[in-house]
Write a protein that binds this DNA or RNA. Structure first.
Lengths: 366, 366
DNA sequence: CCGCATGATGGTAACGTTGTCATCAAGCGG
DNA sequence: CCGCTTGATGACAACGTTACCATCATGCGG
């Protein structure tokens, strides 16, 4: 697989000139070019050219060492000459396998998820898999629809950012018989494999940190459901254990941007009983809180300590720098990818579960 | 398609309890559950149950109005009863079509791209397509590999965040004969369809804005290649036209985070000839510049005006608020999705090109 | 009442690949 | 030199679906 850069003069097409204003004569009708699509070349064409049987071509492509060197060479040449590429549908239909690994993210716009998916993709693509990402959008309907199509598609494996909550969907996935990777939490009974961390522990750790820094009246800001609820639960436990007063819980249903965080802090500070510190279980919300604090002339950390969750590059850089509890999402992706590959290679991984440590990135907000 | 929420009691599995420490006896061997995968049900099973021919089931699923109501009802019931779902590989193999729309992003972690993909996905998923995102990582090799597999996969359509630069790859795509959507620029000769904007114009507009605000000695910060180069080109033209001095051009090869922006500003401010304003052709870089400016006690906009490119929510919120030139990426995604659907529905869209206007979001940084 | 258009339905074959088994040559110990 | 194993190669069929064409009933104008 050599760089295309060398294969041709690498004509860069960027030009940025637009001629919409002058459409001119329509270039040979709409459907015409559609027909001009190159005739499909099949494995048979390659076989004929290399003077071998189609099945031998198939073998040469998938287990080169099972074919004698001379035929292999002939076949490779024929492939190059014809530009043949395997038809994954036919292959998947016959063999029941495919080289596609499907990932599902509840939200494509999350920095954290994107980072995990990116590193996971790198691992799997290096192993020859095609890594594709779909979206479930925090909606059970979409999730079910996606999983149903998945059931028939039989990808090689499935990577999820998050865990499947609906038992019926869990059952659906279990039935497919391919490696499934869940992440970002530690459910009691994972579908198959899991690389995650404890969200309740994150909450407890947050309470701990706030206590150690001397805060005694705190507030919680986060999502109402899912992992947010887990972190809240842990936070409550932690507060109780340390004797910290949990002044208020500001819960949101969905996070669409930093403005949600602004609203939360405004709401928190509008209460009669003001907290001396805040645990934001979501980095975007934390960012919004930081900004709103500045606007309200609430000094961080002098007037209000803020502890975030996640790994946001940006939050860390904004003065005074957000202190966060989180996980290394790139590491999570890599670990997940490695475990998937182990599972795909036939030898099931020694460990189907991996618990990641929580990491604290110190900023100046506490 | 009804909500799964109603179908069962919606058992929430979140628990966050981990028992890695106590693996216990391995649960019935590794491969055992693999075999337990449900026997595949095919269209023939449904047909038998509904007492019709397989082909009629196929029709009922794809063109319900071509099947009489009574058979349709029987078939629908049989489908529900068996939990049948179509095998997309067999379907794609035979028909040469599929309901998958493949999107390729050069970078999954870009807020802009994610936003465009998200809105594009929404449009296409509503129309019944499965929207999957792959990654090309700004690498020609990856791009070529991805496109090659694409060639055989025959998705229904392809959505690209960006345009294809290599002529050989453009040819490859052209040959597939499916709708192709390019975005984010206005190349001279798009492969098929295009929803984009002029990057050179963005550069000229930037020079214009800086001039109007009274700046006369400016600097450029951005990526060296691709669209960054186009914006720089336009910026140079604009500066020349207005008689603005372009003090320096700070170019980076790749943007990995805000720290790149910090470095850029530091480097710019270290020069003997300091600019009075900055055009950052990338929102992450702009963010980094804003932060570094604060650290260096460079007041924005009093000491240095900063003009960004993009639509970053966060940059807009950071005091004094970044003024940006950009496009509405969600709109771009929607438009692209709509045009793809028009093309997919057989009737080619009236217009295969759509030029988006640049929008200026006023912040306080100029 | 005939012939023809129309719409519903089904039979057959084929999409391109690979699992399975058969075949054949080569190597090797006895 | 025989019978065996081993490895390379190929023939055949099948994966599940849909394109294509045939068939049949129905309706309608002449």
């Amino acid at each position: 697989m050599q760089s295309a850069r060398e294969e041709d003069g690498s004509t860069v097409v960027y030009d940025d000139v637009l001629r919409i204003a002058d459409p001119g004569p329509p270039k040979q009708g709409h459907g015409a070019e559609r027909e001009a699509a190159a005739k499909r070349i099949s494995i048979g064409d390659v076989a004929r050219l290399a003077d071998v049987a189609p099945i031998t071509v198939s073998r040469a492509l998938r287990n080169p060492q099972k074919v004698s060197p001379d035929k292999r060479a002939r076949i490779e040449q024929a492939v190059a000459q014809t530009g043949y590429s395997i038809n994954p549908h036919a292959s998947a239909l016959k063999s029941g396998r495919s080289n596609v690994v499907l990932a599902f993210a509840s939200n494509l716009m999350s920095e954290q998820f994107a980072s995990a998916l990116k590193s996971c993709a790198a691992v799997l693509e290096d192993a020859g898999y095609l890594f594709l990402v779909g979206q479930t959008s925090y909606s059970y309907e979409r999730e079910t629809a996606a999983l149903r199509s998945l059931h028939a598609m039989k990808p090689a494996a499935v990577m999820l950012t998050g865990v499947i909550e609906l038992e019926s969907n869990r059952e659906l996935l279990r039935g497919i018989g391919i490696p499934i990777m869940e992440t970002w939490a530690l459910p009691r009974d994972p579908i198959d494999m899991l690389v995650g961390f404890s969200n309740t522990e994150a909450g407890r750790l947050a309470a701990d940190m706030l206590f150690r820094k001397g805060y005694r009246k705190v507030a919680y800001v986060g999502r109402r459901s899912g992992r947010g609820a887990l972190r809240l639960q842990g936070f409550r436990e932690g507060c109780q254990a340390k004797g910290i007063t949990l002044v208020c819980e500001e819960l949101v249903d969905d996070v669409t941007g930093v403005s949600d965080g602004r609203r939360c802090l405004a709401s928190v500070m509008a209460r009669p009983a003001k907290p001396d510190a805040l645990f934001c279980s979501n980095d975007v919300l934390a960012l919004g809180c930081m900004m709103e604090a500045r606007r309200l002339n609430v000094r961080v950390p002098a007037d209000l300590g803020i502890l975030g969750f996640g790994q946001s590059d940006i939050a860390a850089e904004i003065p005074p720098g957000l202190t966060m509890i989180g996980v290394d999402s790139a590491l999570l992706g890599r670990e997940a990818g490695a475990m998937l590959i182990a599972s795909l290679s036939g030898t099931p991984p020694a460990q189907k579960l991996k618990r990641l440590d929580l990491v604290v990135s110190e900023g100046g907000s506490l």
